[in-house]
């Protein structure tokens, strides 16, 4: 007992909220350990946002770097010039709002379709025999580890005018003229669904795997037809997986750049692509910063709040 109480400050600290009560020599050690990742993230994750905010308030300039400074040192007087013009422009030009709303629409619809495609797959995997389950899971995980860029590229060869899909449809006599599929919104949806399908299947699978067979039997025993059983038991019990999977698809899809750039047309407005073009094509760093700030405010912050709420709900359950 004695040795326990002497050498267990770590355990005590975990249970007792006040770190002040710990032996003094340990406090600097622990703070030091915790400060390494905290400082790294502070420097390379948090401060950059302050820089973004600062530059979004500057003006474009033909200079290196291509923006004006906020602080002017004019011999004796220091002047601070804040330029809200970028933000004003964001709201005046409908391009940005349209791109924002369209990104949400595209991400939401693709998430829904991904869910519909992923559900039967996850269900069949979860109900397979253990040996087959490993094989099927590996088949899902394999694309997940393969280069994302190359998988999007695969669809370019698949969907183009003289691509595989058109060849098959033509030879089956279903169409007379090759369809234009590449560089359309359709291709963007396909690309997003395809890329993020494994992200949906895996959380759904782990929710469905926990589903006890006897619950399904109980539902049947109490008078449920198979479809009722699905809606009344399977869906409510896999809800955590549905929510987790949907977030994993929706979040990256909203800010997606590569898929609309490769598969979409120039009219496919998505906010991530607008930011990219603002930066790389127009070289308007302050405007790109303003777009980033607004994305942070109206996209990332709501998503983080949603995720936190979800996490808390799960903890409570």
């Amino acid at each position: 007992m004695n040795s326990m109480s002497q050498s267990a400050p770590l355990a005590v600290g975990r249970r007792r909220p006040s770190w002040l009560r710990l032996p003094g020599r340990l406090i600097p050690g622990r703070s030091l350990v915790a400060s390494v990742p905290t400082l790294w993230l502070g420097l390379f994750f948090l401060i950059p946002f302050a820089v973004v905010l600062k530059i979004s308030l500057a003006e474009t300039a033909i200079a290196v770097p291509p923006y004006t400074s906020l602080f002017e040192w004019d011999g004796a007087v220091a002047a601070l010039s804040l330029n809200l013009g970028n933000y004003q422009f964001l709201f005046e030009d409908s391009l940005y709002l349209d791109a924002y709303l369209n990104s949400i629409k595209v991400a939401a619809i693709s998430t829904l379709i991904t869910l519909i495609i992923a559900f039967p797959m996850a269900y069949v995997i979860a109900r397979a025999t253990p040996g087959r389950r490993v094989v099927l899971l590996s088949l899902v995980i394999l694309p997940f580890w393969t280069s994302f860029l190359l998988r999007v590229y695969a669809w370019m060869g698949f969907l183009k005018k003289n691509g595989v899909v058109n060849d098959v449809l033509l030879s089956l006599g279903l169409i007379d003229q090759p369809l234009t599929m590449l560089q359309t919104d359709f291709a963007v949806y396909i690309g997003i669904i395809y890329t993020y399908l494994p992200f949906m299947i895996l959380p759904l699978y782990s929710a469905l795997e926990k589903l006890d067979d006897s619950l399904l039997e109980a539902a049947e025993d109490l008078g449920c037809r198979p479809l009722q059983r699905f809606w009344l038991v399977v869906v409510p019990l896999s809800l955590p997986g549905i929510v987790a999977g949907s977030l994993l698809v929706f979040i990256p899809a909203v800010g997606e750049f590569v898929i609309p750039a490769l598969l979409g047309s120039s009219d496919t407005l998505m906010i991530g692509r607008v930011l990219w073009d603002e930066f790389f094509l127009n070289r308007d760093w302050p405007m790109a910063s303003a777009v980033a700030t607004m994305m942070l405010l109206f996209l990332v912050v709501p998503i983080m709040l949603l995720r936190n709420g979800q996490g808390r709900k799960e903890e409570a359950a």
């Binding site: 770590l10 249970r15 990742p37």
Partner: peptide, 26 residues
């Protein structure tokens, strides 16, 4: 997961989950 409460815990836990939801362009 093992230090209980310490100074900067909230900042660290916030900054560690944020990159997961941050669009790459930002």
């Amino acid at each position: 997961s093992r230090f209980g409460r310490f100074r900067g815990r909230l900042a660290l836990s916030g900054m560690i989950t944020a990159p997961l939801v941050m669009p790459e362009v930002i």
